[in-house]
Nucleic acid binder design. Structure first.
Length: 270
DNA sequence: ATGCCTTATTTCATAAGA
C-alpha cells in the first residue's frame, strides 16, 4: 500500500496538479487537508476516474479533510469523539478530521488548528484539540490493527524541523506545549515515520509562498505520518516529494509518501 | 533552475494561513 498525506490548500484550485500527481505517483490511499470545499462540491467524478473513492468532510471556505482510496473505504467517521469547537463558538466542530478503513488499515486524516499566536484563544483551542485527539486515537494506537494518523499537525516536533529555530522564538508551531501535545500522541503508541528528503538533509513539508521561501529552503516539517506498531513494522520507505512544491500554482505544502509492504493486488483480492 | 503569496468569499477588499 502506498499512502500519502498532502495539504493541498484547496482541492478545487489544485485539481489539475493533484490529478497529474496521482497519475504519476500512484498512491492507494490519500489523506488530504485544507480541501476548502463543501462536501457537495467535492470533485468526486474527477478522482473516481483515477479509481479513487472519496470520503470527504468539508466546511466550505476553510479547513476540510478527505481520504481518497482505491483499495476500498469503510467505516467512515467524521471528526472524532470529544472533538472541541472553536473558542466561544456555538457552531459544530470544524471539519478537521476524517477516518476510514482501507484494506484493513485504519487511516485518519487530520488538519490540526493553526493556533495563530501563543496568546490567541485559538492557541488554547489547538492544544485542547490535540489533547482530545490523543484520547480518541488511544485505542487505535494500541490495537493490533494497523493504524495511521496522517496530516498537517501545524507543529514542528523538534528544532531540526524548522529552518532556523531562532526565527521562531515567540511563534506557534514550536512551543513546548505544542510539542508536548504531539509527544503525547507518540506516547500513546504511535511512531513518527521518518521520511527521506529528496534534496537537502531536512525533509521539510511546508514552505511559505512569500519571499521565495521555497527556493531558499526556508521550510518546516509539520506534515506528519504517525503509525502504530503494526503499521510501522510494515513500512518499507517514506519520502517527501518536494518536486510537487515546484512550478506553477503549487500548494505551499509538499506530499509525504509512505510505502507499506502490503501489496495492493493481494489486499484487493481478499 | 524551483522564483519572490494564495485561497474563497460576505469579491475590486478581507481574513486566514504558519
Amino acid at each position: 500500500m502506498r499512502l500519502v498525506t498532502w495539504n493541498v490548500n484547496s482541492v478545487s484550485a489544485r485539481l489539475p496538479r493533484l490529478l497529474a500527481w496521482l497519475r504519476v505517483t500512484g498512491p492507494d490511499v490519500v489523506c488530504l487537508q485544507e480541501t476548502k470545499c463543501p462536501d457537495a462540491a467535492f470533485l468526486r467524478a474527477e478522482v473516481a476516474e483515477l479509481g479513487y473513492a472519496a470520503a470527504v468532510h468539508g466546511d466550505g471556505r476553510w479547513n476540510g479533510v478527505a481520504v481518497l482510496s482505491r483499495m476500498g473505504s469503510s467505516d467512515i467517521a467524521v471528526g472524532f469523539p470529544g472533538i472541541p469547537s472553536i473558542p466561544d463558538a456555538e457552531q459544530p466542530p470544524e471539519a478537521r478530521a476524517i477516518a476510514a478503513t482501507c484494506s484493513g488499515v485504519r487511516v485518519m486524516s487530520v488538519y490540526v488548528p493553526n493556533g495563530r499566536s501563543p496568546e490567541d484563544p485559538h492557541f488554547a483551542y489547538k492544544l485542547r484539540w490535540l489533547t482530545a485527539l490523543r484520547s480518541a486515537i488511544e485505542p487505535e494506537a494500541a490495537a493490533e490493527r494497523p493504524f495511521v494518523l496522517a496530516g498537517d499537525f501545524n507543529v514542528a516536533p523538534t528544532d531540526a524541523d524548522v529552518w532556523d529555530p531562532a526565527a521562531f522564538v515567540g511563534s506557534t508551531h514550536v512551543t513546548p506545549a505544542e510539542r508536548g501535545a504531539v509527544r503525547a500522541l507518540l506516547d500513546a503508541g504511535l511512531h513518527d515515520v521518518p521520511a527521506r528528503a529528496l534534496k537537502y538533509d531536512t525533509p521539510f513539508t511546508y514552505w511559505d509562498y512569500r519571499a521565495g521561501a521555497f527556493h531558499q529552503n526556508l521550510g518546516m516539517r509539520i506534515d506528519l505520518v504517525l503509525a502504530n506498531a503494526a503499521a510501522y513494522a510494515d513500512i518499507t520507505d517514506a519520502y517527501v516529494d518536494r518536486e510537487a512544491r515546484k512550478g506553477r500554482s503549487p500548494s505551499d505544502h509538499a506530499p509525504v509518501v509512505v510505502d507499506l509492504g502490503r501489496s495492493s493486488t493481494v489486499e484487493l483480492s481478499r
